[in-house]
Design a binder for these strands. Structure first.
Lengths: 334, 334
DNA sequence: TTGAAAGCGTTACCAC
DNA sequence: GTGGTAACGCTTTCAA
């Protein structure tokens, strides 16, 4: 019925002022008398006027929209990340265009959509950008930031957990608690997260004289953890501890071990990564490495907003430490 | 550096045609000769031209953006829902503005943002709209649809699992499998989902002569399931089976029971709702009611798109059945 | 402090 | 088929 949309012009007419003045009230707010402001606000209220962000974006060249492309949203770590990004950005007046990518590299058409909508910035979680993709974003003046991944010599910033350090600490902890036969269930080998966790882990163990680490390649899913652990435990190798690339994988590994008659942690220690909610559930009580989500998200947003403001880009990589959360899935030295 | 954005005008100049013709190529596609089309496409490719969706939206009055406001994104059911919505809508050329609401009623400022951006439609999962909110959307010609909730006498459509039917079937199943002492751990009592599941459950049990159902009120979280089950099992009531309002709650209940020395399902049967991935994990092997996510999402999208097209709204409520998934958390009659 | 007018990058409606 | 031109609803000069 009332198909006609309410515009600033309608408000102007009703309030008996010019459209420019209405615009000032809802925009800068400056240079308008208290009296007219009130008339305008009243008229706007009466008509149910809302400024049109689309029209505004067209002229200001700023949409206040941020694209977020996520992968593995089924991994409980990411909904939490998404929620935090949403909340923080909403506070600052930004809106999220959500995209779910299924590939290690964000696809060209996904990038096209983000560019078409002229988002002010893009957050990429757990995926990478081809160099042509980066060029396309940069050429369109769209700030980019990588969350939980990084690359060498990037043209853009990245925020991630210091996976190498974490891997080391985990290795040290397992040695300290008396383990001698180690295994690692990785995520996909092309991801920097996996590579660094593995490197740190192996390096720490090597320092203690352990060079023979059993490695199984997974994909960060429960199922892959389950299968990998099964394979590991049914081989003729001795394994007294498994470091899993993430928590979901670790939960799979624990279930596999239990199904083979192992007691956790008496017969086998398992350690995860992320510290998702489930890690603290009694059925699992998973010892794990806590990624500092809060800090990571805040830092990402700070960098992104800064980059959106600045004229010249300042590229920087930020590795946040995180911390070991000790629960019940790792046997303490007897 | 190349701060200047490429517009259809630039393409037109390079291709030696008018801007109108460029617009036709990227728009309707009609009324342009093969020759010019190729020139234009070539020029666009060369310049890296992308049509500006913001400008387009301004004139067409259609943004191809859909707002999705979700609650409880930490419940693993919803990331799956989000992923499916994203995928289906992306196929059809729609983009998602993601919002996370923490309230049972979507807040006024959240609605304002959606209206400012002139989304074509809005999907609300697991939350409700005040009647003033509905009026605001409708007045702005924004289609609305409720996912997994419904209200009586609505002004808009809703898609949800037939919770009453499911509750009945679950009641019947527990009776059939030889249970006699029933409990229900609910979600918040103001949600239609909870009310209907409870009603169906109680009605089915009543038909078999069971009237004394122990009820604990939870909030659909793991923790609330844990606490509620503990309370239930430590009371002096006999309980041989618990129907939990959702899977997460059921997992909490199982862990609580185990921590008290109960074996599942020998000493206690537990049944959930949703059929999230975790329900099939060996540690839990949860018997549950599967919500037909795929169908629900598809139906929601069909209704939404239809409503966006139509002049007059056609309100309808769609209850989809779902099905019982039998695993190992319910004792079979001995 | 205010209003008129020029865009922003499209689509849509005209003539030709 | 094609190009000129008027919107779309706003912000932003620029004069007054």
């Amino acid at each position: 019925m009332s198909k006609k949309k309410i515009t600033s012009m309608d408000v102007a007419k009703l309030a008996g002022v010019s459209q420019s003045t209405v615009s000032r009230v809802f925009g800068s707010g400056a240079n308008v008398s208290e009296k007219k402001r009130n008339q305008i606000l009243e008229a706007a209220e009466l008509l149910g006027y809302q400024p049109n962000a689309i029209a505004r974006g067209l002229i200001t060249n700023k949409t206040n929209m941020i694209g977020i492309v996520m992968r593995n949203i089924q991994n409980p770590f990411y909904p939490e990340v998404l929620e935090k990004f949403y909340t923080r950005l909403a506070e600052k007046g930004y809106h999220l265009i959500f995209m779910n990518s299924e590939h290690n590299f964000v696809q060209e058409d996904e990038i096209s959509h983000l560019i078409e909508y002229h988002v002010d910035g893009v957050i990429i979680t757990d995926a990478l950008l081809s160099s042509s993709a980066v060029q396309r974003f940069l050429k369109n003046d769209i700030a980019i930031i990588l969350f939980n991944r990084y690359i060498e010599n990037p043209d853009y910033s990245a925020v991630f957990c210091d996976n190498f350090y974490a891997g080391q600490e985990i290795g040290n902890y397992l040695v300290k608690t008396g383990h001698k036969h180690f295994a690692f269930i990785s995520g996909p080998l092309e991801t920097s997260t996996t590579i660094d966790r593995k490197k740190g882990f192996e390096q720490a163990l090597a320092k203690h004289g352990y060079f023979d680490i059993a490695v199984e390649i997974g994909n960060y899913s429960y199922e892959s953890g389950f299968e990998a652990a099964k394979k590991l435990l049914q081989s003729n190798k001795i394994v007294d501890s498994i470091f899993c690339g993430n928590d979901i994988t670790a939960l799979g590994a624990i279930d596999a071990a239990k199904s083979l008659g192992y007691n956790i942690p008496e017969d086998l220690s398992v350690i995860g990564f992320d510290d998702i909610n489930m890690a603290s559930w009694p059925s699992y009580s998973l010892t794990t490495w806590k990624q500092p989500i809060e800090d990571m998200v805040n830092q990402t947003i700070d960098l992104l907003l800064h980059e959106m403001d600045e004229e010249e880009k300042s590229v920087s990589s930020h590795a946040l430490p995180g911390e070991l959360i000790i629960r019940g899935s790792v046997r303490q030295r007897e």
